[in-house]
Amino acid sequence: MAEQEIAKHTKKVVQLMGKSEHGWRHKLGEMGLEIVTIVFAVSLSIWLHSLGEHRHEQQQVRAFLLGVRHDIGSDLDMIKELNQAYHAYDANFDYLGKLDPHSAPEPQAFEAAYQLADNNYFFNPLVSRYQGFKSSGKLGHIENEVLLDKILELYERHTAGIKSSEAGWRNNQDLYRAYIENGLTGEDSLAERYRLITAPKGKRLLRKRMTYPQLYDRYKDYAALGAEIIKEIDHEYPAAAQEKK
């Protein structure tokens, strides 16, 4: 519609330039009015286009943030499970580390503890939505800068911190596994396993496998910031937040 108006008034300006029945002052006045009309139509067209583009961008932001809210909620559930798992691992390492090398093992309890010592559980956050929005260059469309900063901090700093701490835990597990594998001199029997676990090196490696407080702190920080982000997204879109209740 705006394009049609621009074309119409541009044509009129050209026609006015060719007319000879009016003086130049009259033609200049009419041409000026038409040019002002064209400028207004162009400005209106640009404004309407920008308004439509902004509305589309904010629709994408809304879909992204509500999706991120779901992703972070799932991550927080995983954080709770991880905390429980690592406390269970620590209790298990403590049990194994206190076993007396001169005593006979209680077969069922020892076997269960020995198997658990080989387990692991690492944080696997849902990041594909965030990475896709980031790679498309759309993060800048989020107008709430405080919320954007928190999202960046969560995905760029806190996630990396957790991965770093978990890498240290994984490295200690690898050392423990290598010790068990290389230390078996004969059949993989209960007696052989017990000998390795209760040996000085086995006890030392079990102590090293205890979870560093740093990892628990980083899980806690991630959960706290994630909860803040969910709260702010709910504040941005209260209607959507009510639907989830």
Score class of each variant (00 low, 15 high):
residue 176 Y to M: 09
residue 176 Y to I: 00
residue 176 Y to H: 13
residue 177 R to N: 10
residue 178 A to L: 13
residue 178 A to T: 12
residue 179 Y to W: 08
residue 179 Y to S: 00
residue 180 I to K: 09
residue 180 I to E: 02
residue 181 E to W: 14
residue 182 N to F: 08
residue 183 G to V: 00
residue 183 G to Y: 03
residue 184 L to K: 15
residue 185 T to C: 04
residue 185 T to H: 05
residue 186 G to Q: 07
residue 186 G to I: 09
residue 187 E to Y: 15
residue 188 D to N: 13
residue 189 S to T: 15
residue 190 L to F: 06
residue 190 L to Q: 04
residue 190 L to G: 03
residue 191 A to T: 10
residue 191 A to H: 08
residue 192 E to Q: 11
residue 192 E to N: 13
residue 194 Y to W: 02
residue 194 Y to A: 07
residue 194 Y to L: 05
residue 194 Y to K: 10
residue 195 R to W: 11
residue 195 R to F: 13
residue 196 L to G: 09
residue 197 I to N: 01
residue 198 T to V: 06
residue 199 A to R: 14
residue 200 P to V: 00
residue 200 P to Q: 04
residue 200 P to A: 09
residue 201 K to A: 05
residue 201 K to N: 02
residue 201 K to C: 00
residue 201 K to Q: 10
residue 203 K to V: 12
residue 203 K to W: 09
residue 204 R to V: 09
residue 205 L to V: 10
residue 207 R to A: 15
residue 208 K to M: 13
residue 208 K to D: 09
residue 210 M to G: 07
residue 212 Y to C: 07
residue 212 Y to G: 13
residue 213 P to T: 02
residue 213 P to F: 11
residue 215 L to K: 05
residue 215 L to W: 02
residue 216 Y to Q: 03
residue 216 Y to C: 00
residue 217 D to K: 15
residue 218 R to V: 06
residue 219 Y to H: 06
residue 219 Y to G: 01
residue 220 K to V: 13
residue 221 D to A: 03
residue 221 D to C: 01
residue 223 A to Q: 13
residue 223 A to W: 04
residue 223 A to T: 04
residue 224 A to H: 14
residue 224 A to K: 14
residue 224 A to C: 03
residue 226 G to I: 04
residue 226 G to W: 03
residue 227 A to S: 15
residue 227 A to V: 04
residue 228 E to Q: 14
residue 229 I to A: 09
residue 229 I to N: 09
residue 230 I to C: 09
residue 230 I to Y: 00
residue 230 I to G: 00
residue 231 K to F: 04
residue 231 K to R: 06
residue 231 K to Y: 07
residue 232 E to P: 00
residue 232 E to W: 11
residue 233 I to F: 02
residue 233 I to L: 07
residue 233 I to N: 04
residue 234 D to K: 11
residue 234 D to R: 05
residue 235 H to E: 11
residue 235 H to R: 13
residue 237 Y to E: 05
residue 237 Y to F: 15
residue 237 Y to S: 08
residue 238 P to L: 02
residue 238 P to A: 04
residue 238 P to F: 03
residue 239 A to I: 11
residue 239 A to N: 12
residue 240 A to W: 15
residue 240 A to F: 12
